[in-house]
Design a protein around this nucleic acid. Structure first.
Length: 496
RNA sequence: GAGCCGUUAGCUCAGCUGGUAGAGCAACUGCCUUUUAAGCAGUGGGUCACAGGUUCGAAUCCUGUACGGCUCACCA
């Protein structure tokens, strides 16, 4: 279903729309600008409520001066010679009371006849309490600020239609408190992450979104074209390689928080553009980053949910540390015995599970692990011991050259973060790229391309460094009990 | 990409095995000076997503298309 407002012919026939347009004309005919921009509210609804709601009626009566505020009219109850309405602003809502006796008659009539639910209005008046004790503004002056030509969704059930909620998110935000809460939390999460890293002397940076080579992850990129240079460019699938160039340049602690693009399936856990943070810290190891990420995520959880126990769907996730750390190889050996690392047994096992490994040992190992254990990792768990051949940018483990110093963080069966000690040996890096190119030829088309420019950066020397990427959308899903990634992205990808 | 489900008034939803469209809210007209899902009386509002088909007759059955949801696949 497309939006009704978008189809012009229906709109012309819509009676409520036509009626509101005629009210608009009427306001103009009376010399009132229905889109006035000369009213400055001096208060917010939250201010008024938090400062004065606890006062007695007598105390309120003794207060001098008028309060002014502006917002959307979200309800209206008309009694003939008086009326109540609620104004909603960014901080909340407050009730207003307009009375024939306490305002000029023309304004009172205008209110009754021409102000609709959905319009924006400004009011000036004093505070009082109704019989039921609700703090209310007695309107002395009323200002028309914006006429809404279309009616808002229903006041009680709000807006339920999922498609309309996503396509016309503004209506969802007006109608549904929960939606507003989700996006406030999202904003707060991002803010907390910045604060956390800033406090630890990380520098926030911006690197290109348009890449000549799509690197830093294994994913299919979006392709675009630069006309003047007549060349294809890719939307970044990760900022990793540019951030590490900055570390080469001496920016020892950097992070970038921003949009990343992957040209793959859309699902409740995947949106083609999503937000992630990557950060790099020189002289740190992947184990240091386990500690740091645990601290960071707990900091975010504490300051949003306010509890280490987080309810998600029908589960309870316990964020209280220290988090479990499990090794892929050890876990698989416990299950299958040591023969699991022998190619013949491994590939047979993978084949029996329907896993497409393409003769790549590391791929078979990680996919078997994911298929069997991913879903069981409810509480935050660091999974480490990744095979070399699926980790072309990670540093080799000092004890086991088949393994890299890398981990992924799983929470509630989902990958939330990926991190490793960075490979800073340019000769090894070049070989890894070469191996990737070989595998790409075998049909692994999302594998890494050769990136000589990045290799030369390493040739100038990158200090020992560890870096991590965290999927912000998935983290926000967990913290807001959202079962779909679309619930935490304002405008999720939909067919036009 | 596959399977299942959905699309009815501005919004939320009914509408059974086919008989020609309903409610609540919103809107409109009245009445009502402390309501808060205000109330009371009355009124208007629909190409039942779209296109075909079956039928005397289709919101309802069938086919296709569009859009969406969920699951799976691909993957991150």
């Amino acid at each position: 279903m497309r939006t009704k407002a978008a189809s012009g012919s229906n709109a012309m026939e819509d009676k409520q729309f036509e009626l509101r347009k005629s009210k608009l004309k009427e306001l103009r005919a009376m010399g009132i600008d229905p889109y006035a921009n000369d009213f400055t509210p001096e208060h917010t609804t939250r201010e008024l409520v938090s400062l004065h709601a606890s006062k007695s009626p007598e105390e309120l009566e003794e207060m001098e001066g008028l309060f002014s505020l502006a917002g959307r009219v979200v309800s209206k109850r008309d009694f003939g010679k008086s009326a109540f309405f609620h104004l909603s602003d960014r901080t909340g809502r407050i009730q207003a009371f307009i009375q024939k006796n306490s305002i000029d008659e023309e304004t009172f009539t205008l209110f009754r006849k021409l102000l609709d639910v959905g319009d924006f209005a400004g009011v000036r008046g004093e505070l009082f309490k109704t019989r039921t004790g609700e703090l209310t503004v007695r309107v002395r002056e009323l200002f028309f600020l914006t006429k809404a030509l279309r009616p808002l969704p229903e006041k009680w059930h709000g807006l339920q239609d999922v498609e309309t909620r996503y396509r016309q998110r503004y209506l969802d935000l007006v109608a549904n408190q929960r939606t507003r809460e989700i996006f406030k939390i999202r904003s707060k999460v991002i803010n907390l992450i910045r604060r956390f890293l800033d406090e630890r002397d990380f520098l926030e940076v911006e690197t290109p979104v348009l890449h000549p080579i799509a690197g830093g992850a294994t994913a299919k990129p979006f392709v675009t074209h630069h006309n003047a240079l007549d060349m294809d460019l890719y939307l970044r699938i990760a900022p990793e390689l540019y951030l590490k160039r900055l570390v080469v340049g001496g920016l020892e602690r950097v992070y970038e928080l921003g949009r990343t693009f992957r040209n793959e399936g859309v699902s409740t856990k995947h949106n083609p553009e999503f937000t992630m943070i990557e950060f790099y810290q020189a002289y740190a190891t992947y184990e240091d980053l386990m500690d740091l990420i645990e601290e960071l995520v707990c900091y975010v959880v504490e300051n949003t949910v306010g509890d280490t126990l987080v309810e998600y769907e029908d589960k309870k996730i316990d964020f209280k540390g220290p988090w479990k750390r499990i090794n892929i190889y050890e876990t698989l050996r416990e299950k299958f015995g040591s023969k699991i690392t022998e190619e013949e047994f491994l590939f047979a096992k993978a084949d029996s599970m329907g896993i497409n490994h393409n003769g790549i040992k590391g791929k078979a190992l990680t996919e078997i692990f994911e298929a069997l254990f991913e879903a069981t990792l409810l509480n935050p768990t660091f999974v480490y011991g990744f095979p070399l051949d699926v980790s072309p940018l990670a540093r080799k483990n000092d004890d086991d050259p088949e393994v890299v110093d890398r981990f992924e963080l799983y929470i509630c069966g989902r990958e939330i973060a990926n991190a490793f000690s960075e490979l800073n040996d340019p000769i090894d890096q070049k070989k890894r790229f070469t191996d990737q190119v070989e595998m790409k030829k075998k049909g692994e088309d999302e594998y890494h391309e050769m990136d000589n420019d990045y290799v030369s950066a390493l040739e100038y020397g990158m200090p020992p460094t560890a870096g991590a990427g965290i999927g912000i959308d998935r983290l926000v899903m967990l913290l807001t009990n959202s079962s779909s990634i679309r619930e935490v992205i304002f405008f999720p990808h939909l067919r036009p």
